[in-house]
């Protein structure tokens, strides 16, 4: 069965959300340190989020689709 199709915009949004979630998990410790830094003010949070999600540009739309449309595993998992 083919994986469910999602429109492009939805795919991008879903992928960006996933990317951010992964990044915040992987760099949780570093992010805490940045938040505690002296220069963390004004736009800083916005910059941080935008900087993290920039990386989505490295994935082609097809790659993004491949990742976000990976459905749950079949029941017969060993």
């Amino acid at each position: 069965m083919a994986p469910p199709q999602k429109p492009d915009q939805e795919v991008t949004a879903a992928f960006t959300a996933y990317y951010l979630q992964r990044a915040t998990t992987e760099f949780a410790e570093d992010l805490d340190k940045v938040r505690a830094a002296d220069d963390f003010k004004n736009d800083a949070l916005q910059i941080l989020v935008s900087a993290l999600q920039q990386g989505t540009a490295m994935f082609t739309p097809e790659e993004q689709k491949r990742i976000v449309t990976s459905a749950a595993r079949p029941a017969g998992k060993p």
Partner: peptide, 15 residues
Amino acid sequence: KLSATWIGYAAFLFN
């Protein structure tokens, strides 16, 4: 340096 400024600069350079 783990600071907001460095990250902002890195993001700018990436762009």
